[in-house]
Computed example of a mutant assay.
Amino acid sequence: MDIEKSTLIMNWVNFGIIILIMKYFFWDKLKGIIAERQNYVDAKLSKADEDSEKARMYLLKNESILQSAKEEGKKITERQKQKGDKVYEEIIDDAKNEAISLKERAKLEIEREKEKAEYEIKKQAVYLAVELSIKALEQKIDEDTHRKLIGDFIAKVGM
């Protein structure tokens, strides 16, 4: 391979001229395109950083809202539990009061029945006393015997 020096030098000179022509006509455009691309990449990176920061802020805000909602839920649950306990206590108190009331009414009913029974017994005692008196008058007994019969009758009846 014989390469002539003159051809080699001419190739280098032509290459240098092409580079100078390219630099003169296209270098600024190429630098502009590279700068534009660099600005585009920087803008995208900046936007990505901003979006990342916004996402982080939204995440923190959402976590705060979620925590607040959980706390509010706990408060609501506690209030409802307290209301339930209060209703439970009211029901228990009402049941106790109703039981006391029923007991009192039962006592009154028993007392009335007792008085009614005593009245009936007294009524029967009077009736029997009258019957005894009628029998005593029919037999023509003396006053001492009559008193003795009534006293015995009253002792038996328990008046």
Rank of each mutant, 00 (worst) to 15 (best):
I3M: 09
K96P: 01
D2I: 08
K103G: 04
I21Y: 07
V13W: 06
D42K: 10
S52N: 07
A55P: 01
F15Q: 14
L137E: 13
L108E: 08
M159A: 08
N14H: 12
L66D: 14
F15C: 06
E53K: 14
E63V: 11
K61H: 08
K61W: 11
S133C: 15
E89A: 14
K23V: 14
H146I: 09
M57A: 14
K75W: 08
G158A: 03
K70L: 10
I91W: 01
E104T: 10
L30R: 13
H146T: 09
E115A: 03
V130K: 13
K54W: 03
D142G: 05
S64K: 11
V157H: 05
N62Q: 02
I100S: 02
K140T: 03
Q124C: 02
E72P: 01
K83I: 10
L20Q: 02
N62Y: 03
K5D: 13
T145M: 01
A125R: 10
E138M: 10
A55R: 04
K86D: 11
A99H: 00
E71G: 02
A35D: 08
D94P: 00
K29Y: 07
Y127W: 10
A69M: 11
V126Q: 09
S52F: 10
I91C: 01
R79S: 05
Y40P: 08
K75L: 15
T7S: 07
E89L: 05
V41S: 04
T77P: 00
S101L: 14
R56W: 09
K114R: 15
E113Y: 00
A43S: 12
A125H: 06
I100D: 04
E90D: 12
V126P: 07
A106N: 08
S46R: 14
K96D: 08
I17P: 02
E50A: 12
L59M: 04
I76N: 04
K47G: 08
I154L: 15
I19E: 12
K83P: 01
L108G: 05
K44P: 00
Q82R: 02
I9E: 11
Y58N: 10
L20K: 11
E109D: 03
K107F: 05
L60P: 04
K47P: 00
E78Q: 06
V157Q: 06
Y40D: 11
A155K: 15
I100H: 01
A125V: 08
M1G: 13
E115S: 07
Y127F: 13
Q124Y: 06
K47F: 01
Q82T: 00
Q67F: 04
I76P: 01
A48R: 10
N62D: 03
N14W: 04
R37V: 06
E72K: 14
E53H: 09
G158E: 03
K140W: 06
